[in-house]
């Protein structure tokens, strides 16, 4: 397993350009099935509104997976991720229309550690909200 990004070519403070990930209702249905999380707030608008939510919201773990995709695509190898943690700070509201919602993920190289490890500080936004906070991934580079 080898990351395609080289440790020596990465600097602390380096920005990694943002990527948009679009999410539609069907994506949440697929995620519910694959993950086994069938909480109806993630697929049933009637239920979501009954419990005080503005609309159906994405699974926090779906959002975490999108930011994870950003990390593995950047590093070039999913096996390079040695530590990945987030706090779910806001909801991703997914309306029932063709546009759906967009999760925008970007990162900065926060720190270089020994052993070819780097720490990425991730930012994930949807609409006006920051949907992840304390989001950090430690990745072993080539």
């Amino acid at each position: 397993m080898t990351a395609t990004v080289k440790y020596d070519e990465v600097e602390a403070g380096q920005q990694i350009p943002a990527v948009d990930y679009r999410v539609h209702r069907v994506d949440l249905v697929k995620y519910a099935g694959a993950s086994g999380d069938f909480n109806p707030i993630h697929w049933n608008e009637r239920h979501a509104k009954a419990v005080g939510l503005p609309d159906v919201i994405a699974h926090g773990m779906f959002t975490m997976a999108q930011a994870g995709r950003f990390v593995t695509d950047w590093a070039g190898d999913p096996g390079a991720v040695v530590d990945y943690g987030v706090r779910f700070s806001s909801m991703v509201v997914v309306p029932d229309n063709d546009e759906g919602a967009v999760i925008t993920v970007s990162a900065v190289v926060e720190e270089k550690l020994d052993g070819n490890l780097v720490v990425l500080a991730l930012t994930a936004r949807s609409g006006d909200s920051r949907v992840l906070s304390k989001a950090r991934a430690t990745v072993r580079l080539a």
């Binding site: 080898t2 990930y21 993950s35 995709r69 190898d77």
Partner: peptide, 30 residues
């Protein structure tokens, strides 16, 4: 991998995973 919208062949194709140095298909971090 399909449910998180990730089409990386390393999650589906054992040959692609082996070419990347893994013993078999690898799981996404989450």
């Amino acid at each position: 991998a399909a449910a998180i919208g990730d089409d990386n062949p390393i999650y589906r194709d054992p040959e692609a995973a082996r070419a990347a140095g893994h013993p078999d298909v690898i799981a996404p971090p989450t």
